[in-house]
Write a protein that binds this DNA or RNA. Sequence first.
DNA 1: CCAGACGTTGTT
DNA 2: GTCTGG
DNA 3: CCAGACGTTGTT
DNA 4: GTCTGG
Length: 234
Amino acid sequence: MCGRYSLTTPVEALRRVFGFLEQPNLAPGYNLAPTQGVAALRLGADGERHFARLRWGLVPAWAKDLSIGARMINARAESVAEKPAFRSRRCLVLADGFYEWRKRETAPKQPYRVTREDGGPFGFAGLWESWTDKGSGETVETCTIVTTEANELLTPIHHRMPVILAPEDVAAWLDAAASPEAAQALLRPCPAAVLVAYPVSTRVNKVANDDPGVIEPLEEGAPEETPKAQGRLL
DNA sequence: CCAGACGTTGTT
DNA sequence: GTCTGG
DNA sequence: CCAGACGTTGTT
DNA sequence: GTCTGG
C-alpha cells in the first residue's frame, strides 16, 4: 500500500519532467499524509497537462461528508475497473519517494523510504473526484493512489506498492479517452531495477515530523534511537 | 417505483 | 452520482 | 501509513 | 477493538 510519501523536488524540475503549464509555489513535503493537499497533474479539456492540488483520500460525489476520504487513500488496481467508488477520472500524483513499513517480530515496524535509483521524481497512477458539501456548497477535489502487488525490491518489506508509471506511459494514463484496456494494462508493479529502498528513522511515523531528517538513511545496526536523539534538529 | 449501498488496508 | 434489491 | 481518541448525564 | 485526523 502507500500511505505516506515525499515530494521535495523543486517545482522547476517537476515542470521539466512532466510538462505542466502552471508555475505553482510548492513547499517540500518530506512526510505527506492522507487528508493533506498533494501535487497532481490532470489532462485539461484543452488537452494540456495542468497542475492541481488535490486532497489525498478519495471522497465520492455521493458521500455525506469528507470523513470517508481518510480510508479511501488507495485503490487496488485489481478492482479499479469494477468498483463504483473508483469510476473516477485519472490523474498523476507527483512524488520522489514513498514509505513502507516492514513488520518485525519483536521490534516496532521499520520504515523504509523507496526512491528512484536516479533520485528523480516520478508519478503514481491516481484517480480523482469532485465532492460538494450540500450545506455550504463548497467543492473539494480529492484523489487516491492506485496500488498493486509488490515487485522484487518491495516484497521483503511489504506485499503491496503504489503503481509508478514509466514516463512514456503517463500520457496513456491521463487520457481518459484512451482505451480502458490500455490503461488497465499500465497498472502493474514497476521494474525493481529502477528503485532503491533504505531504512529511515521512525520519526517518519509522526506526520508532524515534516523535515529533511525523515528522508535521511538510518545506519544499519545502529542502536535504537533514544527519544533525545529523535528530537534533535538538523 | 423508492431505499439503501457504494471502500481500502491488514492479517510474517 | 449509479447501481442493486425489494 | 501511524497516532490518538474513543462517553454519558444534566439543562437550578 | 475501531474510527478519525493528519
